[in-house]
């Protein structure tokens, strides 16, 4: 940590990092690190007890977040961050469980877990860093890759329709859905803080530059060009119908808080059902006590 301390001043993000692993492997201008700054601020603002927090990532460049944060963090297998996080939450309902992963991990190989966790309204905070590509493995087409862009698996251009993730998770049942870009650092912090206040399945999509594997092949310049594009083309529309927020390659990006509603979460429904059918025979799950001090 010594080289991150300057005249006794500390970067606010530093206490949340495994400083011995920095510099990280992310490319120059990769947006993932920027999202981590917003996340650290949200943890500070929400005054969350870090001992009650767990962060779960899948695999990918974004999945690396689990390895860089100084929290109880789990780097799981590809696509399985949500089921792993579900297990943590069900076994220890008092935990705040955050899933921090990429668009490919969450919506392709992990797509079924995503929709069913939203349907069941599992109390998870899902942060999806959407760089519109499978970055770590070399820039293959993801379910989120916009029409007409070029990727390593679609060298003549993508022709398949892409997922509009806010629409997908709203339809499946998420109680909180927001989208921002890495240009909107303070709004991301606010969205994360709001999600921490919410009980149920929350989904925050962050559109993020991947200069190396998405932009380069599409001649879209470097990361700073992506940030300027986000600044110029983002339109804030809180409450926009999610059916209208699909992304295109170079068009407008609709950002904002789209969904904020109440539905009982999975464990609340489970307790109600068991109490109704079993009456006094139902014993609530015992509280987990961690004595690993």
């Amino acid at each position: 940590m010594s080289d991150s301390l300057i005249n006794d001043l500390v970067n606010p993000v530093e206490p949340f990092l495994r400083s011995d692993r920095i510099p990280h492997i992310w490319c120059p201008g990769c947006g993932i690190g920027t999202t981590v700054n917003s996340f650290a601020r949200a943890l500070i603002d929400s005054k969350i007890d870090l001992r009650s927090l767990a962060l779960v990532s899948g695999i990918g460049c974004t999945g690396r977040v689990a390895g860089y944060v100084k929290l109880d963090s789990f780097h799981t297998t590809h696509g399985r961050a949500i089921p792993f996080a579900t297990g943590l939450k069900l076994a220890n309902p008092k935990l705040n469980v955050v899933v921090y992963s990429g668009d490919g991990d969450l919506s392709a190989i992990g797509g079924n877990h995503l929709i069913h966790a939203a349907r069941r309204n599992i109390d998870l905070k899902v942060i999806c860093v959407n760089n519109l590509i499978y970055a770590m493995t070399g820039g293959q087409t993801a379910p989120t890759t916009p029409d007409h862009s070029t990727t390593s698996t679609n060298p003549y251009g993508v022709f398949e329709p892409s997922f509009n993730l806010p629409h997908l998770v709203e339809a499946a049942g998420a109680v909180y859905v927001a989208r921002w870009t890495t240009f909107h650092v303070r709004q991301i912090t606010k969205a994360m803080s709001e999600a921490f206040q919410k009980k149920g399945f929350s989904f925050i999509e962050i559109i993020s530059p991947c200069p190396t594997l998405y932009q380069r092949r599409n001649k879209m310049g470097d990361a700073l060009d992506a940030m300027k594009y986000y600044k110029e083309k983002s339109k804030v529309r809180h409450g926009a119908p999610t059916s209208e927020v699909g992304m295109t390659m170079t068009g407008e990006i609709i950002v904002g808080k789209f969904v904020d509603r109440e539905r009982p979460d999975y464990q609340t429904m489970m307790r109600a059902q068991y109490t109704e059918s079993l009456g006094e025979r139902y014993v609530e799950e015992p509280e987990m006590v961690c004595d690993c001090s």
Partner: peptide, 16 residues
């Protein structure tokens, strides 16, 4: 304002 710190993807700058 520390916007530089919020944006920096490499945790390399901050303002107080």
């Amino acid at each position: 304002c520390d916007l530089c710190g919020m944006y920096c993807p490499d945790f390399a700058i901050f303002a107080t």
